[in-house]
Design a protein around this nucleic acid. Structure first.
Lengths: 192, 192
DNA sequence: CTAATACTGCGAACACCGTTCGCAGTATTT
DNA sequence: AAATACTGCGAACGGTGTTCGCAGTATTAG
């Protein structure tokens, strides 16, 4: 608050003429991020493709604004107008998909959660001071001998993970989403 | 800190004779929770079953201690000794599974993240003041007419989600874990 | 053009937080 | 019995989000 006030060249007290509280401000900021998502991308004809695209946008937004992840923990996940637009859009994408309305609501929720999860994982790789030190610490612990599997894993995988994070995210969603609707057997692949 | 000191019948300053800082205390608490997990359950012979069981334990721990979820956001996810035991145990379970060591490390990480995610989802249903008010608010917004898909979804699914959260979690993992190791095609089902 | 009214910016202060300092009081060793 | 170490902790520091009340400035009314 004080920092924000300084950035605006004003005093902390002045902010409260425009927002009722810090939490309200954070809600507004979160909804502003929801507005950054582009819901107008043309449908690829396949709901899975569309939904994966939406999830990637959501993840990208969370990578752009790391503070958002620490916010979604907040009680109740208040939905601002733009967040509701997003929700409606996602449900629209899911309209041709199988599954009950309840399942679809849960899918959208899970989608958001996964976007946050992967965004955090990507951010943690960037920040999170000195991954070398962490690796060294792990190696030291493993070398004590009480953790054979960890030791073996570190021996094999000292090379940094070569897999593309984003591709992994996409693969995950493609497996996941059909499985969560239907029983996983009967879902149409949209052969346009 | 002050609250904890009061619960212990002492002053806030006294705590600092035993922990260096609040963060250090939280790390210790997190590792104490890792110690709650029972890593000695007999193997079912199938690594997938074992891993799902471990994930359920992890999720249950996070439901028991909701503050833990708000903690894992912290920088770097410091691994205490019990957390390392857990990691080694998980890698041990994954030893007979296909995939590279790097993939397995990522799987364990994802497993933890999903446990947190689902635990939060279950907790949010319990706490998160007055879900009725939230639903009413959503319904009111949907009734404005600008969100047809949301309206349709709410009309169909006004009944609370009948699906068992835990069963859903298990189904998800069973789909997910094999897909993340191997390409999803060639994974052995461990026929004892 | 003056007077009453509304709105805005914000310095000062409050309550709360994690944390530190230094001092009594108590154990432990010599 | 004296010196030394360790423990509990009141008081205070710097930080936070937030409120109060007062100046200063628009806006409206007469």
């Amino acid at each position: 608050m004080r920092a924000l006030a300084q950035r605006l060249g004003t005093g902390p007290a002045s902010l409260y003429r425009y927002v009722g509280s810090r939490d309200e401000l954070l809600d507004l900021m979160a909804d502003a991020v929801a507005d950054e998502l582009d819901l107008s991308v043309a449908s690829a004809g396949d709901w899975l493709d569309d939904l994966v695209g939406l999830a990637r946008q959501s993840k990208a937004a969370h990578v752009r604004h790391p503070w958002l992840a620490d916010l979604n923990d907040r009680r109740g996940e208040v939905l601002g107008p733009h967040a509701i637009d997003y929700l409606d859009h996602a449900l629209g994408i899911l309209a041709p998909a199988p599954g009950t309305a309840g399942q679809k609501l849960e899918v959208v929720g899970l989608l958001g959660g996964l976007a946050v999860l992967f965004a955090r994982r990507e951010s943690a790789a960037t920040s999170s001071g000195d991954p070398t030190a962490r690796a060294a610490h792990l190696a030291a612990v493993a070398a004590e001998g009480r953790h054979p599997h960890l030791l073996a894993a570190l021996k094999t995988a000292d090379a940094p993970p070569p897999t593309d994070r984003d591709a992994q995210f996409v693969r995950l969603l493609r497996r996941l989403l059909p499985a969560m609707l239907g029983q996983g057997e009967q879902f149409g692949q949209g052969e346009s």
